[in-house]
Amino acid sequence: MKIREIVPLLEAEVLCCEEDLDVEVCNACGSDMMSDVLAFVKDQTALLTGLVNPQVVRTAMMVDMRCIIFVRGKCPTPEMIALAEEGHIVLLATKLRMYEACGRLYVSHLAGGD
């Protein structure tokens, strides 16, 4: 699935790296615990999280993720957006809660990764 297709599915706002919306993601991971994310290493993963601090972006950088989706209306700081731009990571924000956001992606055939 292209990141571009996630935007309408989650009624999301694109916060940065609009030029990378055609990047493909093959699976997704929903978590507020970054070490759990680091234990789950897959190529082309999108991260859904309600956590807002720069370590979310660094965690994504470490595992080569290209898309982070902030749920529950959480908004990343300008510092996080700058970091994401540096790492070419698309940041999306949705008002949906974690459960519903994950559910909508899952039924749209974005795998859980295992």
């Binding site: 615990m33 970054m34 070490s35 759990d36 680091l38 234990a39 999280t49 956590l51 601090n53």
Partner: peptide, 12 residues
């Protein structure tokens, strides 16, 4: 609360 300290650091 910052997303770490779940006891996964050293195992990872």
């Amino acid at each position: 609360a910052l997303g770490f300290g779940a006891g996964m650091g050293l195992p990872n």
